[in-house]
Design a binder for these strands. Structure first.
Lengths: 350, 350
DNA sequence: CTGAAAGCGCTTACAG
DNA sequence: CTGAAAGCGCTTACAG
């Protein structure tokens, strides 16, 4: 293994001291070092293919230009767009991301955080897979930390979340505007804050428009649950003309159920999916109209906020950012058909 | 911000030298340090909540216990199970993973690799989103590197891939064993090595059993393409009784198409999906029988191999690991119906 | 305008 | 059995 060149090697080759090398290469040479020596240093550095050892720089500067990202597994997994955006934004800022994925309990998380602290990460990002209240760990008092998709009830930490209630209202709004007067909702488990807020948003918008809502709550946010709930909803005597699924995979199940029942989307049934984190809803047949949590923007804002915290030595201002979820109109919403043209669900052919 | 305790702080509190602290805390005290001093050091360390500064340790030991993971974006994105398994295995080995996601071109990749090298990662993992031949970069001659889902034609690097050809044969095998005598295949683009190998595997198994195969090649591995291809295949006068989709999202499209055509799975049509990386195929209605690329195992083997490379200073043995893809039998395969019971595809209700 | 020195926080030979 | 010293590779006051 070829040893990497050090500043000393460059200094030797250029015939100057190590300090001069550091000064020149860090752009603080003006008025300090003679022009010809500067050039010699630059040439030598290029010739030796020199780049500073980031570990040594980190030790010296007490800054690692590294951010720790804590995640933990959950049935809903984590969001790829958020991951991508985190990586992209940190890289653009000249930082490295160290990911730690743990089990969903305090002990494992503390351990992961201790490792991150030992490695002297400059800042921390906590990305929760599901919207929750998060009680900050001890280290977060000494390392700038930003919460993503979770809230610190004590208000001590900056957090970035989506306006889930508003998202629910927006979903209902799209359907109401299209002329629907009865809404079916397939909602995630009520012990999930996210599911609850979305449902409340839907119900608020419906109530404001004096529109009835029939809700099917499911235990899991998976395809099977969406399928079963949709069958129940669509087989009822007074089946709704429009459906909202509070989660992406529920929508996949609903689309499958509709197809099996011979119900055409959007001709016979309008459908709005919340979430498109897996780029599933938007790519289904037909492409679903969605209300999307702005995962990329959330990650960008969070990285920006947390890096701001490392530059301002007071840790930066504490804020709570709530991002809007906006509708992406695609092909799954139409005006409701007059009642007499509504289809008779066929026998199940599953 | 509270300063973290250093070894010096511990030494002061325990009334010993820094070296003694290091010795004791690294378990090399036996026969060197008096028992009571050892205890004093341990107590002091606990009291000050001391843990070594990993950056300093890295500089001193010239080992960062860190591995760099290079990925790049592609339409097919990257595999969450692989990601999870990478994280889990590195953590278990006491290493940290630094992820770098780049654009799919050599320049961006070189830059990312340079950053990783500057940060002195002990080893490198290259995770390709699609099976390709990968020409190693310069740094990989000096840092132990393992390729995942890609091959080094020059044979200089250890690589971990899946037996895609065998996977194709296995898929066909499941269907042939169930009694099917005509196979439809929805195959990914032929410029993809993975798609090509899978198709060849299918064709080889079919040929060995004197069974006809009708292939629909698609340009993109997305739901729309699977949908369109399935409609074509299933609307033909001699429609196959069984379908293989070489990729997960194609299978989603095929299931949707079948539902729209009133074709029941598995009663009227058997279906096998290759891949279940998104846990989509396995959770569809019905749950699809799949041949799965062993993403988790691939990542585990790769991490193990590359860390082996850092311990053996010759960089370790160079191997090419080809992992098997095994069938996961679920609910989408049945014996073919006698011809007279085959359904007439209904008019399209999409 | 430039070089020698100190120090970031560790570990490991080495001298006593 | 223990402590003082050197050194990992850098940067930044500081003295000249």
């Amino acid at each position: 293994m070829v040893r990497k060149a050090t500043a000393q090697d460059v200094a030797d080759l250029a015939g100057v001291s190590r300090s001069a090398v550091s000064l020149v290469l860090n752009g603080r040479a003006q008025g300090h070092i003679a022009r010809d020596k500067q050039q010699a240093i630059i040439d030598a550095a290029r010739q030796l293919n020199y780049t500073p050892n980031a570990v040594a720089v980190s030790l010296r500067n007490r800054r690692t230009r590294t951010i720790g990202v804590l995640t933990w597994s959950s049935p809903s997994g984590f969001s790829i767009p958020m991951l991508h955006a985190t990586l992209k934004t940190t890289t653009a800022a000249g930082y490295l991301s160290i990911f730690m994925d743990t089990a969903n309990d305090r002990d494992h998380q503390s351990q992961a955080l201790a490792t991150l602290r030992d490695h002297q990460v400059d800042a921390l990002l906590v990305i929760a897979p599901d919207l929750i209240d998060y009680r900050p760990a001890e280290v977060m008092r000494t390392i700038p930390t930003t919460l993503v998709n979770c809230l610190d009830p004590s208000g001590g930490l900056t957090s970035v979340v989506a306006d889930e209630h508003g998202a629910g209202s927006a979903a209902a709004g799209v359907l109401i505007e299209a002329g629907h007067t009865s809404l079916g909702v397939i909602a995630g488990p009520s012990d999930s804050m996210q599911s609850r807020l979305r449902l409340e948003g839907i119900e608020a918008a419906a109530a404001a428009n004096r529109i009835g809502v029939s809700v099917q709550a499911v235990l899991n946010r998976d395809i099977d649950s969406g399928f079963a709930a949709a069958r129940t909803l669509l087989s009822a005597s007074e089946a709704p003309t429009a459906l909202i699924c509070t989660h992406e995979r529920l929508a996949v199940g609903a689309v499958l159920a509709a197809a099996n029942l011979g119900i055409a989307i959007p001709a016979d049934l309008s459908l709005v999916s919340m979430d498109d984190g897996e780029q599933l809803a938007s790519q289904l047949v037909p492409h679903l109209t969605t209300i999307e949590r702005p995962d990329r923007a959330m990650a960008e804002q969070a990285v920006t906020a947390t890096l701001q915290g490392v530059d301002e030595d007071d840790g930066g201002e504490i804020r709570q950012l709530t991002l809007n979820c906006s509708p992406a109109i695609r092909d799954s919403v139409a005006r409701p058909q007059p009642p007499n043209r509504r289809p008779c669900p066929q026998a199940d052919r599953r």
